[in-house]
Design a protein around this nucleic acid. Structure first.
Lengths: 225, 225
DNA sequence: ACTACCATACTACCATACAAGTATGGTAGT
DNA sequence: ACTACCATACTTGTATGGTAGTATGGTAGT
């Protein structure tokens, strides 16, 4: 029996993988937590095989550290890696933004405007959960609008290392109005093909996501290495 | 019994993984080749388990396509992905280069110069295999010299998608002298803290690695999708 | 000759058993 | 009281058998 979502079959392995990844990124499995294949297999009521294969994937992404014959732990947050992830993301987003200001497909510009309008509504309705989704989608649209789908995927992968820090920060202090203003400026830069303005705005925009690592490391030393 | 290289234990899985990855990148397993867990396990005289776990890793890196209950094939080269990989690599290398021109640790500058001197020797000796290694090491030193070790790892991962195309090109047409000149200019830019010159030189340097995708796709259509 | 069907031989997926290394707590000897 | 040792209960690594879905080639029926 196969459950199909889109064109992707959902295997037991994928279910375990996605669930574990979610729990790690949401800090429900905090950095440093010891987990074993057997423990997880019992929790999901499956055998060790799909669990092991999930471990292999998560270890490759740097979210698990597997010590043969000793155990497996949720990886501690590597502050150096977080800083470099921020660095990589900034420069890739800016490079894509400059590309977008040079050439952007018209139909995607419409989608971008539609997304902005929805953001406007979300702020009025104070629906910040939806606003979070729209923020993600806004950036995604910029990537797809200038044919950088794979680059988006890489950025997503890189962002994994930022997410746990951002989660620690409990980002309730977002200034959504400011966020919207920046998004609007980015949109205008693309529309008017103003490369230097677009680059400048994206640089400012990226600066928003800087989490104060040192403060976090002091507050949660057990989560960092 | 454990064989230790450095601090890394070598498991059967790692042996299989590295061997398969090598064969794929060297095109000994050409794009489109069907392989099965059983076939590989027989070839390496191991069980299917470590082979499967290698497949999981290689699939995650985009080198294998696994179709449940149908089979596994070495992935076809995705020309769009190759182009974006080139895009990402260029912008990350340039960003790191600008950083290097701003601040570079003195001891690493010495290593960089030593590497250059070795390149000089290799060209005189026409030792192009060693020269290839030194080229890689030169770029690696730039990354480590401004504390961008993790960024180097990401670039290496991205470059996987460029390597098969470069292998097809059978890069015997390298102009090593020109390569050396460019490396020397990069070194000078770092030494003199000339950011704009460094950025410009790296942009030129990256342009060298552009493989003519369209020509390759015409010549080897069966390897592309 | 052509088509529909089915047996068979694949495939990857999952469960389970065993192997080998490691941490731990108790016990015997000093 | 303290130390060295060892049984035991963990851990991940590997091998293997069974399951379910899929491709394929032969065969019976038209």
């Amino acid at each position: 029996m196969e459950y199909i979502i889109g064109t992707q079959a959902v295997s037991t392995r994928d279910i375990v993988y996605r669930s574990l990844k979610n729990q790690i990124l949401l800090l429900e499995l905090p950095p440093g937590t010891s987990i074993s294949e057997k423990e997880i297999s019992l929790k999901f009521n499956v055998s060790r095989t799909p669990v092991r294969e999930s471990f292999v994937r998560l270890a490759q992404e740097g979210l698990l550290d597997v010590y043969p014959q000793r155990g497996t732990v949720v990886s501690l947050i590597d502050s150096g890696l977080v800083e470099e992830a921020r660095f990589m993301r900034e420069h890739l987003e800016r490079a894509v933004m400059r590309e977008a200001c040079s050439s952007f497909q018209a139909k995607h510009l419409i989608d971008l405007k539609a997304n902005l309008d929805k953001q406007r509504l979300c702020i009025e309705d104070q629906d910040y959960k939806e606003m979070f989704m729209l923020d993600e989608e806004f950036h995604h649209l910029i990537f797809t609008g200038c044919s950088k789908k794979n680059t988006w995927e890489v950025v997503q992968q890189i962002k994994v290392h930022l997410n746990r820090s951002r989660m620690l920060k409990l980002t309730a202090d977002h200034n959504w109005e400011h966020l919207y203003q920046q998004h609007y400026c980015l949109y205008e830069a693309i529309q008017t093909h103003d490369v230097s303005q677009g680059d400048h705005m994206m640089q400012e925009h990226m600066a928003l996501t800087i989490a104060d690592q040192e403060m976090l490391m002091e507050k949660y030393p057990q989560y960092y290495k």
